[in-house]
C-alpha cells in the first residue's frame, strides 16, 4: 500500500521524536505547536492544492471549531469527544456555505473573502459576551485523556497529522481529486463534462474546514484556554506559507513546511521578526521553488495510468 508510506513515516517519526524529547517540556510544547500548524497547513494543502481555493481563513475555521467545542464542554458539560465532532461539523458546515456562495469569484477576490471571514469571526468572538468570554476568552477547558499529558498530546496530535496525510493522499490520487483539480483549473471545461463545479469545490473546502476545526479542537483542549487571538489571522498566513513552502500539491508537503517554519522560528531571536520571516519565506518559495520543497507537478506522481502505459 503506497498510500500508507507517508502516514507511516509521520507516525514513526513522531514515536522516535517522543523518545528523544520525552523529558523536555519545551520541546514537547514545540512539537504540539508544530503538529497543530501541520494540520492547518494540511487544510491549506487540501483547499489550495486540490480545489485551487487560496484561503486566508483556515485559523478562523479552527477558531470556530475550538470555540464550539470549548463552549459546549465548559458551559453545557458535553463530553469533549462530542465537542470534537461538533468542532469539525461547525467548521465544515461554515466552509461549505462560504465556498458555495463565493467559489465563482476570481481567485484573488475569493482569497480576500476568506480573509474578511477571518475578521468577522474575530469580531464575533470578541463581542460574544458571556458565551465566548469576549476579549478574555474561555479558561478551564477540559483536557480529556490522553490530551492531559504533554506526551499524550504529542502522540494524539501527530497521529491525527498522519491520518490527515492519508486523507490528503487519497484525495490527490483519486478520480475525485482529478475531477476537482480539473474543475479548479478550467471550470468551463469541467461544466461541459457534467461536473457541478461549485458543489465539488465546496465539498473539498468543507473537508479542509473540518481538518482546520479538528486542529482548533486539539489546540483548545490541550491548551486549556482559548482567546480570540489564540488562532489568529497571523496563523492563517503562517499555515499558507507552510503549505506553499513545503509543497501544496504533495500530501505531505505542508507537514514538511510546518516543521521547517516552526523550527526556524524557534531559532529566531525575536518574535517580532516573524512577519518579516514569513514574507521572505513566501517570496523565496514562490521565486525559487514554485511547487514547494516537495515540489511535485500537479498530476504526475498520482496518475493511475502510469503503470499500465509503462508495462
Amino acid at each position: 500500500m503506497k498510500s500508507l508510506l507517508w502516514p507511516t513515516v509521520v507516525l514513526v517519526g513522531a514515536g522516535l521524536a517522543l523518545v528523544l524529547i520525552q523529558s523536555d517540556p519545551s520541546s514537547l510544547e514545540l512539537s504540539r505547536v508544530a503538529g497543530i500548524y501541520a494540520l492547518l497547513a494540511l487544510s491549506v494543502g487540501i483547499s489550495y492544492g486540490q480545489a485551487g481555493i487560496l484561503s486566508l481563513g483556515q485559523a478562523a475555521f479552527a477558531s470556530v471549531g475550538a470555540y464550539g467545542s470549548a463552549i459546549v464542554t465548559t458551559r453545557y458539560e458535553w463530553n469533549p469527544w462530542a465537542g470534537m465532532v461538533l468542532a469539525m461539523a461547525l467548521a465544515a458546515g461554515l466552509a461549505y456555505v462560504l465556498a458555495r456562495l463565493l467559489v465563482r469569484l476570481s481567485a484573488l477576490a475569493l482569497a480576500l473573502a476568506t480573509l474578511l471571514f477571518g475578521e468577522l469571526v474575530h469580531f464575533a468572538l470578541t463581542r460574544g459576551g458571556d458565551l465566548t468570554g469576549g476579549y478574555i476568552g474561555l479558561p478551564g477547558i477540559e483536557a480529556p485523556a490522553p490530551l492531559d499529558s504533554r506526551e499524550g498530546t504529542h502522540l494524539v496530535v501527530w497521529a491525527v497529522v498522519a491520518l490527515v496525510v492519508l486523507i490528503a493522499t487519497n484525495i490527490s490520487t483519486s478520480a475525485e481529486g482529478r475531477t476537482v483539480r480539473g474543475a479548479a483549473s478550467d471550470p468551463v471545461l469541467a461544466g461541459s463534462l457534467g461536473v457541478a463545479v461549485p458543489v465539488r469545490l465546496s465539498a473539498v473546502f468543507a473537508l479542509s474546514g473540518a481538518v482546520a476545526g479538528l486542529a482548533g479542537f486539539l489546540f483548545a483542549h490541550s491548551s486549556g484556554y482559548l482567546a480570540p487571538e489564540s488562532l489568529s489571522i497571523e496563523m492563517s498566513i503562517a499555515a499558507l506559507a507552510m503549505a506553499v513552502i513545503g509543497g501544496r500539491y504533495s500530501p505531505v508537503g505542508p507537514v514538511v513546511g510546518a516543521l521547517v517554519v516552526v523550527l526556524a522560528l524557534d531559532l529566531l531571536p525575536s518574535e517580532d521578526l516573524a512577519g518579516l520571516f514569513y514574507g521572505l519565506l513566501i517570496i523565496a518559495a514562490i521565486v525559487l521553488l514554485p511547487r514547494g520543497l516537495l515540489g511535485i507537478r500537479r498530476s504526475t506522481p498520482v496518475s493511475p495510468f502510469r503503470k499500465k502505459a509503462s508495462a
Binding site: R178, R181, G182, G194, V195, R297, S299
Partner: peptide, 13 residues
C-alpha cells in the same frame, strides 16, 4: 499541467 490521460479521464465523472 495534467497528463493527457487525466485530461481524458475527467469525462468519466
Amino acid at each position: 499541467d495534467a497528463s493527457v490521460a487525466d485530461n481524458i479521464a475527467m469525462a468519466r465523472h
